[in-house]
Design a protein around this nucleic acid. Structure first.
Lengths: 233, 233
DNA sequence: TGTCTATGGTTGTATATACAAACTAAAATA
DNA sequence: TATTTTAGTTTGTATATACAACCATAGACA
């Protein structure tokens, strides 16, 4: 069973919405209609509709039916920063050292964090980005191999992973967390900083339409990097 | 059927987590154990666990079990959050200690940073916000006196500065930077954390239509706080 | 005409069952 | 001893069924 049935039903309904075949306010097929259409049990059809409702695409009312919700307002203030571009915009020289580049089966914890099956093939790269020869970012990235098959063949001293990935698996969405940590000794070493000084750590997951593309851990020396954002009320 | 069974099970599991009977990383009862304990079918017990996982309280892995997730809170980077509200939304108790509350003429550097004339009157407050009696944020704030004349009369153990300010000088926009720093000894002391552990530092300027309202420095213990954001492409 | 009552359709809750997939750990094997 | 196999547990997917709760409408009734 390659693709679960409920996923197939979700995709079918989502497509009808995205192609404007079903418009906001329209009623989508009821659970029983999907049962007839897809030849599944009601619980399976139900699951598809429930998950779509959970994603905000549908609005369900007991006794009435399921309806296409109003389109989500898009409000993205922050943006994904490409470290190389950022450095060049400052008029400085960006360079990059590749420390690790290999493949491995996904360990359980990582797989869970990325929403993958444990054991699925991952590529792993560890790089250090330098601004005018001074280390600015340590980047450890795990990439879903099936979504970026040529990852290991890239020359990351020329193209950044984020640039390559956005070419082969276009960015659909991303989430990230920011925290303050102490660097592991090897990281402090790679960043040419004392081990007792803080780092800004960004953990970023990027998604294409086909799933999680990569999970990156980005560490910056606390005294060389700041994140900025602007908010309009 | 007043209260659905799956809600009862969710509440029971949630209670054990909130009362620290189950701690982050611990395994929660399996679906079959809940079946035995509550006398329900597996699908019902399963639903309870799935919804808790959906809420971020649990982490489930096929073949392994369900585990209490890391409870470190996630705050949104892209919207101004009131720390008190944030804590209450987690169902925890917010309290606040006032360390400093006074007035001073703006020093040159600060005036420049706020876009004011040097010597203009500022109010200054230093507070510590606690979540369940554990310090979560050290807040040092300089306020343009002319835009919030009653600042010194506020009882900040009841209302947060940010809530008061947004009432008297509605927020038009804001900018902020995020960095990782080591806390000054007095700050580490106020936050009940070791002085050699990193802090997440947010420097935030808020603007009303009449100009810069306040400049705030917010410091969080690195191991108790994360900032999160989501980006749609 | 206006109100009340079925009636059918829809989602919500719940059970019982079956097999697949993934992980752990113990037992069997080389 | 080291490796492979096996068994057991746990979560994932899927079906079939039953009844409850809710809604709209058509039809019965006053």
């Amino acid at each position: 069973m390659a693709i679960p049935q409920y996923i197939r039903i979700k995709d079918a309904v989502r497509r009808r919405i995205e192609q404007a075949e079903l418009r906001p306010g329209d009623r989508v097929p009821s659970e029983n209609q999907l049962v007839a259409e897809f030849g599944v049990s009601r619980m399976t059809a139900r699951r598809a509709l429930l998950e779509l409702a959970d994603e905000g695409l549908l609005q369900r009312t007991q006794g009435l039916g399921s309806f296409v919700a109003d389109l989500r307002p898009l409000s993205s203030i922050s943006q994904i920063r490409n470290i190389a571009e950022e450095i060049r915009q400052r008029g400085h020289v960006h360079s990059c050292r590749v420390l690790v580049l290999n493949a491995l089966p996904a360990p359980a914890e990582l797989a869970a964090h990325m929403g993958l099956a444990a054991g699925e093939l991952l590529y792993h790269s560890v790089l250090v980005h330098l601004e005018n020869a001074l280390p600015l970012q340590w980047e450890s990235r795990h990439v879903t191999a099936s979504l970026a098959p040529d990852y290991l063949q890239q020359d990351f001293s020329q193209t950044t992973p984020s640039a390559y990935l956005s070419a082969v698996a276009p960015l659909a969405e991303a989430d990230q967390t920011v925290e303050a940590v102490l660097p592991a000794p090897s990281v402090a070493d790679a960043l040419a900083m004392p081990g007792d000084q803080p780092c800004l750590k960004i953990t970023r997951r990027t998604f294409s339409h086909r799933g999680v593309v990569s999970l990156a851990e980005l560490l910056h020396p606390g005294d060389r990097y700041r994140l900025g954002s602007h908010i309009d009320a």
